[in-house]
């Protein structure tokens, strides 16, 4: 067992724009799933609330989820976590998540977000395996990991391969050569590892499979990957395929397709107002008011609905 990572010290969670776009896309998806007949507000949300509880606040306020469980590994901040608990309906457990997953109620549907801020390791993979072993049908599972190269500055693909062999040996499949571990290939390696761990947990569960929904890549500094989907049967697959989800840009029903890249372009407030007044736009629309690279414009048109606006508040 690893020592708990004190990520709560690292960043103010709520100010990472790409992460925030991802959260708002999740909310958008949950609303579409509700329309497709999944009673999201009755799901139990289990996540790593840390001391900020950003997702807990969003999911309670905007989705009406009222069964919330935050799992925290560090005993050192037990009081602080409890102090910052935003609602009475948030339960807190100070335990490793791997101890908690097997105890999630078999009588409920779950929304479990394994939102790691580390490079994937054997503990994470064991959590993923347990998640798909235990989660009830119709439950949602999200996994976020850091997909930057592991190890020290100056390491290369050979050392990176050694890392993954150490941490994820059973899940590497045919990725045996050093060339498979080039920096650009690391997100794909991570996707394959996570997908295999998901499948391993599902072995012997003949009634359900993993129905992918999300495959996000984004960077607020480090490049992060989020894989997500539903544990469901053919019936759930049909409901998803019959919903508006399939015509949504950022949805990925197949993990072998390229991830959706959340790119947050740098634009000023004034530029945003102008761009927004032309959204949604066609693929060929351009603006003559100011210079903006076509890539940034395309990225903006995909995320503008989810793009947070930050302003200073004097409290």
């Amino acid at each position: 067992m690893r020592e708990p990572k004190e990520s709560w010290r690292k960043v103010a969670y709520d100010l990472r724009p790409a992460k925030q776009v991802e959260r708002r896309m999740l909310l958008d998806t949950m609303q579409m799933l509700s329309l497709a007949g999944f009673h999201i507000s009755e799901y139990q949300y289990t996540g790593f609330g840390s001391i900020y509880f950003v997702d807990f606040i969003l999911f309670h306020k905007l989705l009406g989820i009222h069964r919330l469980l935050s799992v925290e590994i560090s005993e050192k901040i037990e009081k602080r976590v409890n102090f910052n608990k935003p609602f009475d309906c948030v339960d807190i457990l100070i335990k490793p998540i791997g101890d908690v997953i097997p105890t999630l109620s078999p009588d409920r549907k779950h929304f479990l977000w394994l939102d790691y801020d580390t490079i994937v390791n054997s503990d994470n993979l064991s959590d993923i395996l347990l998640a798909t072993t235990y989660l009830t049908p119709e439950s949602l599972l999200l996994i976020t990991v850091d997909v930057e190269p592991p190890g020290e500055e100056g390491d290369g693909p050979r050392q990176w391969r050694a890392y993954f062999r150490e941490e994820a040996e059973p899940y590497l499949g045919s990725a045996t050569e050093v060339r498979h571990y080039a920096k650009d290939s690391l997100p794909r390696i991570n996707i394959q590892i996570i997908e295999k761990a998901i499948k391993k947990g599902l072995t012997g569960r003949s009634d359900v499979e993993f129905l992918p929904l999300f495959n996000f890549l984004y960077a607020d500094g480090h490049q992060m990957l989020t894989i997500g989907g539903m544990i469901g049967s053919k019936a759930e697959r049909r409901r998803i395929e019959g919903s508006r989800l399939i015509e949504t840009d950022y949805i990925r029903l197949d993990l072998s397709k390229e991830p959706f890249i959340i790119k947050v372009p740098n634009v000023t407030r004034k530029e945003r107002l102008h761009l927004d007044s032309n959204m949604p736009c066609s693929d060929t629309w351009e603006t003559e008011e100011f210079e903006i690279p076509p890539d940034d414009l395309a990225a903006y048109s995909q995320i503008y609905r989810f793009f947070p606006a930050y302003a200073e508040l004097l409290l």
Partner: peptide, 23 residues
């Protein structure tokens, strides 16, 4: 054996808290 593969995953789940305790 399919039943063993399923059981093995759940054996892992059941063992986890014991292993944490011993750690």
């Amino acid at each position: 054996s399919p039943v063993y593969q399923r059981a093995r995953n759940r054996m892992v789940g059941l063992s986890k808290p014991v292993v944490t305790f011993l750690n």
